[in-house]
Design a protein around this nucleic acid. Structure first.
Lengths: 207, 207
DNA sequence: CTCGTAGTTGAACGATCGTTCACAAAATAG
DNA sequence: CTATTTTGTGAACGATCGTTCAACTACGAG
């Protein structure tokens, strides 16, 4: 009974997500969000209660769809875990969209004093990434792609920090080539044999 | 000739800096800034032209005073460069102020789509830090605190990314203990002998 | 003492912010 | 059909935003 909802929740949240990612929470006005989602204020408030509510829903969607999917594809299900870690990094800044919107988690973490109720979602997303790193590292170590004495927990935490840092540099306009260099170096210093040999192989080709 | 200026430029910029650091550019309203600086809108606009102008001045002051001072003290003039790098990191999140406001460069980089004319200042600050890292690493390598084959440029870039990442995690409320662990691990994986022995010494004590 | 100049003050402006609400439209139940 | 319920629409609200400006105050030069 009653009228049918004409908009698709996933579509609307995807649009809102994109806008929040580019402009931040404060930078995205309700008028902008209306235009982006094609919804009217009444419907938006009926569905999400407030701007905060819409943002929370978009952040949850980001965690459940974007973050989870990326962690699964690059980290948990990658056949080569070390290559997976590398592509998890590089896919974050080798984007077609110009300028790179970065990561909603990174951007929200920085803005989180303005949106205190978003910190829980940020923490959840960061934990998902960190445990994904840990999974990939464990598997890599088991396959002797990484040194046996590697401290997985610590390296995972380190990779998370580095990842967030790269996404800050992305927003500041750092060239993608430099971010690639940092990625390579990080994998090398963790002790990735394959990463190192790939890199050395390229060097040797140039001789 | 004319009336004397009653406010001190350094004091005013320090207050503005603190507010922008906590709340971000969009989150700090002119009314907030008036209260924080003790100035009235007319004087503010007379001196800084606009909110953007005030922000730019505050960012420049941050670079010239906070960033430069920190880089000099911890990186360029530290007698032990490796310990200096460590304290450069830890001093960023072992703050008395609760919650930790993070770094104005980090926060601004993320918000930079809203303030395009701030990207130059951000880049300048990041470069200052990176070259400070490079200086400390070079000196450490010369004193054989780091492996002779260390790639200084690359490690400096890596440290910069890690540093920015830690400051994101700070804003998300990550415990300081974890950030310390990451710092230790990063120094160890770069190959800091001293860092590694300190850590191992602690471990051995616990046995 | 007077006058020109530089600095301060705070009321007020239009624009835009997030949000509400009365009403119209579409679906189902009886 | 009518009655009931759910959803869509968009004008409008008060609050706050960044900014302006005319009146006022304090200082130095002559």
């Amino acid at each position: 009974m009653g009228r049918k909802q004409v908009w698709d929740q996933d579509d609307v949240l995807a649009s809102a997500m994109r806008l929040f990612r580019h402009r931040g929470y404060l930078g995205a006005s309700l008028r902008d969000l209306e235009e982006a989602t094609g919804m009217h204020p009444g419907s938006l408030y009926r569905a999400f209660q407030s701007k905060e509510g819409l943002f929370s829903a978009a952040l949850d969607a980001y965690n459940e769809q974007v973050v989870e999917a990326r962690v699964r594809a690059h980290l948990r299900e990658a056949e080569n875990p070390v290559a997976g870690i590398r592509s998890f990094f590089t896919s974050a800044f080798d984007t077609d969209s110009e300028p790179d919107p970065g990561c909603l988690l990174t951007n929200t973490a920085v803005e989180s004093f303005t949106i205190p109720q978003a910190t829980a979602g940020v923490r959840r997303g960061l934990e998902t990434i960190e445990s994904g790193f840990a999974d990939a590292l464990t598997r890599a170590r088991a396959r002797q792609l990484l040194p046996a004495e590697l401290d997985v927990e610590m390296s995972a935490a380190q990779l998370l920090a580095l990842y967030q840092g790269l996404l800050v540099l992305v927003r500041s306009g750092t060239a993608a080539a430099k971010l690639h260099t940092i990625t390579d170096g990080a994998l090398a210093s963790i002790g990735a044999r394959q990463a190192r040999t790939v890199k050395q192989a390229k060097k040797e080709e140039q001789r």
